[in-house]
Structures are given as C-alpha cells and as structure tokens.
Design a protein around this nucleic acid. Structure first.
Lengths: 340, 340
DNA sequence: GTTAGCACTCTTGATATCAGAGTGCTAACT
DNA sequence: AGTTAGCACTCTGATATCAAGAGTGCTAAC
C-alpha cells in the first residue's frame, strides 16, 4: 500500500514524536511540529484515514494517535532515516568491545553489556554459529584421582569444559587410549556430524576398554550438544522494568528470556542481516508486546552470530539500528582477529 | 524484652496469619483463630501495647495490624516453631540436587534452582569458600597457533579456565617451561598467598623467557583473583516480581543482585550457620524492604559455602528455614562426596 | 484485669462533577 | 475536490462526595 506524501509526513511525525515522548499525538501538536500550510482539521482528516487503514491507533476516543504495529512497520520500511553515528559514538562502541581478551565469550559479554546500556533494553548475543562449526580439539586433564576435565574446542573459538567422574583411579594409559582414539575420529568433524552413531564407532574400535570409555563418551556427547546449539548470552533483562508498557508482562518476559533454547531458536529463525519483528509479528506469546531487532554478523570463516535487542514496540529504531549495525560489524572484525 | 505469654500468643498469631494471607489482622479475626476465653476488646488492648512497644504496625488507623521488622525478629527468635519436613519433601530435595555431575558449579546450580522454586524468591548460592582454598593444579592447553587455554583447579573443586593469547607461535618448549616453573611454585599454595610478589619470583626465576611468560603470568593472576573471590550464582530473580511489596524497588533489587562483588560480600559478612536479616536490619539500601536468610554449609575440608534467599520480609520463615537447612546439609554431603 | 458498647477513623468502591484535550462532522469556502 | 472554521461530543484524569465495612480506642461498668 502506498501512502500520499502528506500521509507519510504525518505518519513519520506521529511515530517519531510518540517514540520520543510516549504520549499520544494530537492534530494540533502535530501542526506545530510540521509547520505545514494546512489547518488542524485537514490533519485530522488525514489522521482519521490513517486510522482507518490501520496505521494509527487511538488509545481512547479523545486522545491523540499512536502508531500501530503496522504503522511502525511502514515507518521502518519506508520512512525512517537512519541516524548517522558520530565519531565519538563509534569510538565508544569500539572501546567497549576491544577488551584485551581473546575469548569470544568475553567479547560478546562486553558487546552485550554495551548494547544493553545504549538501548536500555534486554539484549541477547549469539556467538558465531553452531551449524558450520567443527571440532578443533579435545583435551583431557586429570583434575583428581578419579576425575577428568574434558575440554572441547571448536573452529569458532568456543571452548567448553566439563568434568567427568570415573569409577576407578585414572592412569596415564587410560587417558592416552581415549586421547588417541578420539582425536583421530573427532578432530575436524563438523559438530553436526557427531552423533550417537559416530560415537558408537569409537567405542567399538576399542575392544578392550569399552567400560572404561563409556563415561568419557557420555561427557563428550554432552559437550558436543552444549556447544552445537547456538551459544547465547543475556544482558540487561532488568532494563525491561523501565518500560511501563512491559511491566504487566515483566515476569513472563523474564521467564521467556531465561529459556535459552527458545531464545536461541528465536535468534536463528531467519538469515537476514537485519530482522525486525514488531509486536504481534512475533510468534512467541511473551514477545507480542515487544519489538525484537536482530542484527546478524558474519566472520571470515562464514559462521555468523547475532545481536538481538528486545524492548517495547515504542523503541527508538532510528537510533538503535545503526548502533546495532556498527556494533555487530565491529564484533565481527574482532572475531576475525581472534580466530586467526 | 520479655513479653507475656498472651502477648506472645497474639504476636505469633498475627505474624503467621499475615504471612499466610498478606492482609492486616484485626482483633476479631484473631479471636476466632485463637479460641481464647477473652473478648476482642482485651485482644485490642494487647495489640495496642504490642504496637506501642514496636512489634506491630498499623498500615492505617483502622486496618488490622501487621508485624514490624522488630516483630518478625521476636517471632523468629522466640516464637517460631520450625516446620518438620516430610519424607517426600526430603526426597524431593535430594533428587533435585543429586545430579550425576561431579561439577560443583552444576550441583550448586541445581540447588539454587530448586531453592528458588521452593521459596519463590531470589536465591544466591555460594560455592565452597575462597579463603581456605588452595591450588590443586594449573594446566595449559594449546588451542590455537598463538592461543593457550589455562585451567586452574582448586582444592575446593572449582575449575576455571581462561584463554591467553601470545605474540608468537607457541612451541612445546614454551609450554613446558611455564608448566614446570609454575607447577613447582604454585601447586599446594593457598589462593590468598598468590600475589604479585610471588608471581614476580616466578618471572625472575626464568632468566631467559621473561617476555615469553608475562602474558601467561597475567592470565594466571586474573584466574586466581577470579577464583579466590567467593563464587556465587544467582537464581530466580524474576520471582521477586511476584511480590507486590517489592515491585516498586524491583529494578534496584535486580541491579543490586547483578553486582556479584557486593552480593558476595553480603554473603560472607558473617560466620553463623544461620543468618537472618530482616528489612531495615540490612545494610544495603536495596535490601531494606527485604529479608535475607543465609544458611552456611560446610564440607569436610572445612571450607564452606552458603545458600541465601532474598525475598519480602513477609516470607514464610517457618517453612523456608528448615528447607534451606536440609538443602544445605545435603549440598554439603554431595560436595564431600565429590571432592573425595 | 476484663469487658461491652459506642463513637471515631480510615479504606474502598461507587458515583458525580469539571476542566482539558482531541476528535468527527457539517457547512461554507477556494 | 480539497480545505477550513466552528462546534458539539467523547473520553480521561483529577477531585469531591458518599455509604458501607472494618477496625480501632476509649469509657464506664463488671
């Protein structure tokens, strides 16, 4: 649907004004803002039509208008002018992410924290992606008489460890058997290739030590499944409490955010570099009052992650999106750097 | 201050009733509950005195009474009868904690989750303690051409890892040099002994490889300081949103809870097995409307951790405390088991 | 020390009122 | 046909009033 220039102007003004103040916008106020050579009655007529077409909503008969989900959608797709980041803002973002650490998790944590601060919303960050990741190595460390620590490293730089308890005292040869076998079969494989069947072949390739290996195989399998899901981190949940619109559902929202399986599905449900889901466009119930912005970044190794902001539909899209884009690009660069 | 038997009876009834219903308790209602051979007027006189002495509060002139912080304190110290856990409750707790894992963090996570569910409050769990912990081992793993992963293990079973990036390609001998030196000097030391001075002696003991070691030493130092603080985990923050009394301060509370330094100071500020801080008794501002219950557990190795519940002052102390005690004892047992 | 009785206070919910903001409609104008 | 002035209308939000209900505090009598 195409709107007349004047309607676009009005929709833009209502949207931006409402985003800025949180108050419904009336015809008179609008006139003052726009400086148009028309009367408030004309504006009213236009607004009335915008309401009919579903772009604007009246909270009650005699309040001003606010954008509907459809209105926000039109605004974002056609009207919004992306805000240009200033140099100092750019530098701020860079400084925030450029931690000394070469640990992807820490980089993401920094990025998430920064984004939460900038947006005053909840933030989800996803590490470079599970699908394409392969195993770079598996290490075993003896941390007790009967306890081993297994470390799994992926091509995407994710490193996870888990303890594994054995029923007998661990000898050097125990470790070596496992070490040799596993590293031959596992290293270089894509994570998704590593399933029960493959692990079975390991077990059967060692005729004697089967009882010996099984706890290790179990631990390995757990590690793989932990790592092969998208790694996500959460930040700024409590920021949601700052937004009146969300207070009623705060508990549902928080609970939703804690369910990392669902959240990672939310983030991976799409491939576009920029995904915006406004209010009812969201599939998940607790998000129906919120807007979700997902910006995906990619690393040289082709596996990409994502940054995701969750907040009220009334959020400052024009400011947030450029910030997210820049931040995500920068995170991508840092990862390229870290992952050699 | 000693209260008459009848006053104690009344204070108990008011407290328990208010905890159960959340409504102020009036003299008439109280009479029905207590089945005493006295009239409501007498009860009113008693309540009036209890108000004067500061044990009860009237939200407004003509509402019933509710306990003050002082009232809760008296109730807890003198009146409360601890609820006896049923066998099935005991078993529920045991099952919840008895994860297969031998990872202390995972045990605590389970325990925290369970406690959050039982109490409907926010829960902080602290791992067996930093003070007495010593270093059980340091391991290095080559995870990239120029990246090492350093793993630090403590006597309390805590294992933390960190990546360390070098400026040059890593050879086997690099690793060995560090490995030998560090393990000789570090292993068995108390964490608190490991300070800059000690680390300095390592550096100076290796005349040639100083430039080589410095990033590793830095990483080690970071690891030690990460591990030597009390390890805490958080659970059920969003439960706080269920309590009206806390809604106004929800954001401050959440923010407070996220500051793990302060929270760990909160937990370690005391040695008693059971610590209860009611409302204004708390030092930290965001907790002035809440009650904090801390139950400390100990492990054979003498280093103890803690479970901590944070919720409204109107919480069901008589039910929560026995649950916490049993849970903490069980966690202690599990740890004794895990840590050999 | 206890009690009955009663006036008093305060909350809560329902109802009314009023100003203010904003609309929608109509009739007139360009 | 599009625009406008004018005005009646609607709804909110603040404020006041009222009645019912709950609970108290006080007094005088037991």
């Amino acid at each position: 649907m195409v709107l007349s220039d004047r309607k676009q102007l009005i929709l833009t003004a209502v949207t931006e004004r409402y985003i800025a103040t949180g108050e419904p916008v009336g015809s008179k106020l609008l006139l003052d803002m726009l400086n148009l050579p028309i009367s408030s009655a004309t504006v009213r007529n236009e607004m009335s039509e915008l309401s009919e077409k579903g772009y604007l909503i009246q909270p009650h008969t005699s309040a001003g208008r606010i954008p509907s989900d459809k209105g926000y959608r039109y605004y974002i797709d056609n009207l919004m002018e992306n805000y240009e980041l200033s140099d100092s803002q750019r530098r701020m973002i860079e400084r925030a992410v450029d931690t000394k650490s070469s640990d992807p998790e820490q980089v993401l944590e920094q990025a998430g924290e920064t984004l939460a601060r900038i947006t005053n919303c909840a933030v989800v960050t996803a590490a470079p992606g599970g699908d394409t990741a392969s195993v770079r190595g598996v290490e075993l460390i003896r941390v007790g008489n009967r306890t081993l620590m297994m470390v799994l490293m992926t091509s995407t730089g994710i490193i996870k460890s888990k303890l594994c308890r054995m029923d007998f005292n661990i000898t050097k040869s125990t470790v070596e058997i496992f070490y040799n076998v596993v590293n031959h079969i596992i290293i270089g494989r894509q994570l998704i290739e590593i399933n029960t069947a493959l692990l079975q072949t390991i077990v059967s390739s060692v005729d004697r030590g089967i009882f010996l290996l099984s706890p290790l195989i179990a631990t390995l399998s757990e590690l793989v499944s932990e790592v092969s899901g998208t790694q996500i981190m959460l930040d700024g949940q409590s920021n949601l409490l700052h937004h009146r619109e969300l207070l009623d559902n705060a508990y549902e929202l928080m609970t939703f955010l804690k369910d990392s399986d669902t959240v990672s599905r939310l983030i991976t449900s799409g491939k576009k570099e920029l995904d915006i889901r406004i209010g009812q466009e969201n599939i998940y119930r607790p998000l129906k009052n919120t807007s979700v912005i997902i910006v995906r970044y990619s690393t040289k190794s082709k596996s990409g992650g994502a940054l995701c902001v969750i907040g009220p539909t009334r959020m400052d899209y024009a400011r947030l999106i450029p910030n997210m884009k820049y931040l995500s690009e920068h995170v991508g660069r840092v990862f390229d750097d870290i992952l050699e």
